[in-house]
């Protein structure tokens, strides 16, 4: 099987004939090829195991509690089973949405500056470098930062969905900037030249020619950042509080999130809590994949239209 794939490898027709090659060299080649295949198998098996466990265990509780899982508040005592996860679903959605509203416009603006105005200037190069640095800052540090900078001055009222969204926005910002800049770079220069030749100003060119052309890529890059933020737990530990009831208010009152519920319940030894953790994990993964699929579909549709 592996030998077959070696023979059909399109870029290397010369490999189809190894008959003139000494045995030892041929064996090394085969062994290494098998080892590479093994690496693929390992990752595949691990991913399949994780997904199978989450889907299996998660589905059993979600279906058992259906539809209460989506409509009821969270059980107050970790040791008792039931009833729902609505508060966390709502929390995840509104917090991630707020973070998106903050980070995506800011990130796209930054990317436009880097690619359309700054280009190779010293300031743009510095900015690009620090964007990469910021992308590497651990998420827990973002949480601590927002806690110190935003929550502490506001006291106990500071623990709310908006604070959580701020820390997630810090996390998303560099991802959005980097992916958007990549996409803007792919826009052909002659489109800009054509727009200038028609007398358009730089801002008009960017808003009506460059950004629409790059928007499929920008949207899918941003939605990947959203999926990443929706799964983050660490920043929320310091910023969002610990609610069990639904709270639609972004700016006041503590809130919770699916990722928080997974983390809190995974630490408990009670079977009911662990069940809840699996159910929340399935819900979160489903949400994350939904985002990703929407991203693909949206970007495909927009690129077809333009």
């Amino acid at each position: 099987m592996l030998d077959d794939s070696a023979r059909t490898a399109p870029s290397s027709p010369l490999l189809s004939d190894l008959s003139g090659v000494s045995g030892r060299r041929r064996t090394t080649n085969t062994v290494v090829t098998v080892l590479m295949g093994l690496c693929v198998a390992i990752i595949f098996v691990v991913l399949a195991l994780v997904l199978a466990t989450v889907i299996g265990k998660g589905w059993s509780i979600v279906s058992k509690e259906f539809p209460k899982w989506f409509t009821k508040d969270i059980q107050l005592s970790p040791r008792r089973p039931g009833p729902g996860m609505k508060a966390a679903i709502v929390g995840t959605i509104i917090t991630t949405l707020t973070a998106t509203v903050i980070a995506v416009p800011l990130g796209i603006a930054g990317a436009v500056y880097l690619n359309e105005y700054g280009k190779r200037s010293l300031f743009a190069r510095i900015l690009r470098f620090f964007t990469t640095v910021m992308a590497g800052v651990p998420s827990i540090v973002m949480g601590l930062f927002i806690y110190v900078f935003w929550v502490v001055p506001r006291g106990i009222d500071g623990l709310n969905s908006f604070s959580g969204a701020l820390s997630l926005a810090c996390l998303m910002l560099p991802i959005v900037v980097r992916s958007s800049e990549e996409m803007l770079r792919l826009v052909p220069q002659n489109l800009r030249d054509a727009s200038y030749a028609l007398g358009a100003t730089p801002s008009r060119t960017i808003l009506t020619v460059v950004i629409p052309k790059a928007s499929p890529g920008i949207i899918s890059g941003s939605l990947l950042a959203v999926a990443r933020a929706a799964g983050e737990t660490a920043p929320l530990i310091f910023t969002i509080g610990a609610a069990k009831q639904v709270n639609w208010n972004v700016f006041s009152g503590t809130n919770t999130a699916l990722s928080r519920q997974i983390y809190d319940n995974a630490k408990e030894s009670f079977p009911a809590a662990q069940e809840r953790a699996w159910g929340a994990a399935l819900t979160l993964i489903a949400l994350a994949f939904l985002f990703t699929i929407v991203a693909r579909v949206l970007s495909a549709r927009i690129s077809r239209n333009s």
Partner: peptide, 12 residues
């Protein structure tokens, strides 16, 4: 693998 949230790997 990159899309699976880290807390899910932790839970698993």
């Amino acid at each position: 693998v990159a899309v699976v949230p880290s807390v899910v790997f932790g839970l698993w």
